[in-house]
Design a protein around this nucleic acid. Structure first.
Lengths: 371, 371
DNA sequence: CTGAAAGCGCTAACAC
DNA sequence: GTGTTAGCGCTTTCAG
């Protein structure tokens, strides 16, 4: 482990050839006579030679690595230092049903990461994952940019100025975030169309006289796009059967939405449908309605957006719009490879289609048959 | 994007200094006069300079990257080529309750990966993720080894011969797998102690006259260690109240276990407890008992091992041993950083403690109060 | 504090 | 087929 690493020179000497031949054996084995190749390979094995990717990358001017950068989410920052537990004791603990499974950002990121990994794998590339760190994020992302042939970045995690800086060296693709018409390649999810389809589904399920739309307080681009989709669905309907609308804004949290749902229920002023800008809030509404004995879906339909896991296990299960996070990751690397192959192509923008998952919270009839 | 990347030379010229000074400004800013530093930084910005990590790695002989290698699981191989869908259509589909959530290997890996990522992040390192590809795995792992300062490898995914080869260049840590007493650092989970604690819990819950242990067919090291733990719990009990034991082997699948559970139920020969070597099988047993109206936990206790998500939502919820996958990833990188800092320390072996999660499938009393 | 110069290990022409 | 020889872009003594 300690000794100096073997290099081409060592192998060349051991095999009695030149360093160029060693290099050839590794890169283009066909260009070398069988007997020489075998001799070199034997030396490689004997010496435990592992080529330095740094040297190769420097000489070849490409690394075969694509990068993925994301900001340090709270969930990551809150982690504590790792301390190995050598006690060997096995705690036996009661694990009560979790009432409020909170889907953290990290979970989403896992999926994006997996998608990127899959697509990198399919293209014979390796993935370098970098995570921001508060103040240092700028130098970190630059550091990563220095080691890869292309970089995928979560939209909003790096200032445009830095992106442009990096883009002078390697192609950059943005993941998620609002549509943008600039030089960058961009993959994102079609929030507007998704919410449009969700709202259409709700309005088509049965007659809706009044609908409540719950959006987030901080009007993020995602939130805005979703609201646009909702409005679109509304105005697409004939005035005669267009539901009366009320809109409320809340933190994107289950707890806050629960409060809203509660006051709604006790006011007696319950709409026929509640559509939320995300699943967390929809689950909060569900919580409140259950507390107050308001029947979902018979009395009121409820729907969310995101497709988090908790919505799959709620009572009733939550109708939602599933975001293809894994595909986002795949698309990002896909676009990167395309651009690497063809640097001069015009900027690519991919809007990935979402999918409406209809579950019991908007299915007043008999339960969906199992299948 | 296309033009040749700017280098230290460009920056040096632009700032009117030598390349050495540019390098210093970036690596040891304190060694440079304020005015010079600012001038250089300005040039960096103006030119969009991003240092090449390849060149740096070559010159500095360290990369600041740690690698994580895992084999290509089926789930990854089954993946199809990514084809961007530009239709924009939003499918609206019924999403019936999933009866058989299958936790794929990929899911585990996600967690290990996340842990590694977290720990790398905490240590100011970047993570390079490589995935094997059938035949090519050997060259891939070697390729990755060439670009990192240390490498974590899923046990069993790389032949020992190759590991030794790589270890001549950089430190290697094995993740999971059976105990091994060799030169490699190793982090794994204490399967034996976990199953021991689980069995003890079951035996202590109430009087057990007969117990069925369901193990896997292919006797993997994990499977063997778990069985050892189980046997240990058994023989630790006084002969008088030692349960009668039967053992059956099955594929590690929910479906197979369901068949076993069915025949058990219809035979009328139902033990007081069924302990399975993994959760999938325990869920299959639960399925069968539900089908046949066998009351869990009142008539028979059921427990599994792994802590997969599906066990959190089953009916009844499944008592299990939770494996700290994320901690495995963290531990691996932790050990790597330790060794990097102190190359001559003796081989480190970390057995991470597991945790028994007691849920309704082994809790005959009133349901656990909510917390 | 700053500059000059010697590599780091490999690839890619270009000769032979 | 195989060897020679320039670099690739950066870090790091060693002078000054």
């Amino acid at each position: 482990m300690g000794a100096k690493a073997t290099t081409v020179y060592d192998v060349a000497e051991h095999a009695g050839v030149s360093i160029a031949t060693v290099s050839r054996v590794l890169r283009r084995p066909g260009d070398v006579r069988d007997s020489t190749r075998e001799r070199v390979l034997a030396s490689v094995k004997a010496l435990g030679y592992v080529p330095s990717a740094s040297a190769r990358g420097l000489a070849a001017r490409r690394t075969g690595v694509v990068g993925l950068f994301f900001p340090d989410f709270d969930a990551m920052r809150e982690t504590t230092a790792f301390v190995p537990d050598r006690s060997g004791a096995v705690p036996v603990v009661a694990d009560p049903p979790a009432e409020d499974a909170t889907g953290s950002d990290l979970l989403y990121f896992d999926e994006v990461l997996r998608g990127a990994e899959i697509e990198a794998w399919r293209n014979g590339l390796v993935l370098l994952v970098g995570v921001g760190r508060g103040e240092d994020s700028l130098s970190i992302v630059s550091d990563i940019a220095g080691r890869v042939d292309g970089l995928a970045v979560l939209a909003g995690s790096v200032p445009d100025e830095m992106l442009e800086h990096i883009a002078r060296r390697i192609p950059v693709v943005l993941i998620a975030g609002p549509r943008r018409d600039d030089e960058f390649d961009h993959v994102s999810v079609d929030n507007r169309a998704g919410m449009r389809a969700l709202a259409d589904h709700v309005f088509d399920t049965r007659e809706i006289d009044g609908v409540l739309y719950v959006r987030g307080v901080a009007s993020t681009p995602d939130d805005a796009e979703r609201f646009d989709g909702f409005s679109e669905a509304l105005s697409a309907r004939a005035v005669a059967d267009r539901p009366g609308l009320s809109v409320v804004s809340a933190e994107f949290s289950r707890e806050r939405a629960r409060v809203i749902g509660s006051s709604l229920a006790s006011s007696g002023h319950i709409p026929d449908a509640v559509i939320c800008a995300n699943d967390q809030m929809a689950l909060g509404i569900l919580d409140a309605f259950r507390d107050h004995g308001v029947d979902v879906p018979r009395r009121v339909l409820v729907a969310g957006f995101d497709g988090i896991d908790a919505g799959r296990h709620s009572e009733p299960r939550l109708t939602t719009v599933e975001q293809p996070m894994e595909d986002l990751g795949r698309a990002a690397v896909h676009v990167l490879t395309q651009r690497l192959a063809n640097p001069s192509q015009p900027p690519v923008t991919l809007r990935l289609p979402v999918k409406v998952l209809v579950r019991e919270s908007t299915t007043p009839g008999p339960p969906t048959p199992r299948g």
